[in-house]
Amino acid sequence: MKKFLFTLLITAFAATVSAQTAKKAFAVKKATTGKTATKTAVQPLAITNTLDSASYAFGLGTASNMKQGGITALNYALLLQGFKDAFAGKTPLIDKAKAEVAINNLVNSLTRAKYSIQINEGKSFLENNKKLPGVQVTTSGLQYQVLIKGTGVSPKVIDTVLVHYKGSLLNGDEFDSSYKRNAPISFPLNGVIPGWIEGVQLMQQGAKYKFFIPYQLAYGESGAGNNIPPFSTLIFEVELLKVTAGK
Score class of each variant (00 low, 15 high):
residue 2 K to N: 02
residue 3 K to Y: 01
residue 6 F to C: 02
residue 7 T to F: 06
residue 12 A to E: 14
residue 27 A to E: 14
residue 29 K to W: 06
residue 29 K to C: 08
residue 30 K to C: 09
residue 32 T to M: 13
residue 36 T to V: 12
residue 39 K to I: 15
residue 46 A to K: 15
residue 48 T to L: 15
residue 49 N to C: 14
residue 54 A to K: 06
residue 57 A to K: 02
residue 59 G to E: 07
residue 60 L to I: 06
residue 61 G to E: 02
residue 63 A to T: 15
residue 63 A to F: 13
residue 65 N to G: 10
residue 69 G to F: 03
residue 82 G to Y: 01
residue 86 A to C: 10
residue 86 A to M: 12
residue 91 T to Q: 12
residue 94 I to W: 03
residue 100 E to M: 00
residue 101 V to R: 04
residue 101 V to H: 01
residue 102 A to K: 11
residue 105 N to P: 00
residue 107 V to K: 01
residue 111 T to I: 09
residue 111 T to S: 14
residue 114 K to D: 05
residue 119 I to A: 01
residue 124 S to K: 10
residue 131 K to A: 08
residue 135 V to S: 04
residue 136 Q to R: 13
residue 144 Y to R: 05
residue 147 L to W: 07
residue 148 I to K: 15
residue 148 I to E: 10
residue 157 V to M: 05
residue 160 T to L: 09
residue 160 T to E: 08
residue 163 V to D: 02
residue 164 H to P: 08
residue 165 Y to N: 11
residue 165 Y to E: 14
residue 168 S to T: 10
residue 177 S to K: 06
residue 179 Y to M: 07
residue 189 L to H: 01
residue 195 G to Y: 03
residue 198 E to S: 08
residue 200 V to I: 15
residue 200 V to G: 05
residue 203 M to D: 01
residue 208 K to R: 10
residue 211 F to W: 09
residue 217 L to N: 02
residue 218 A to N: 03
residue 224 A to G: 00
residue 225 G to I: 01
residue 229 P to Y: 00
residue 230 P to H: 02
residue 234 L to W: 03
residue 239 E to H: 14
residue 242 K to F: 11
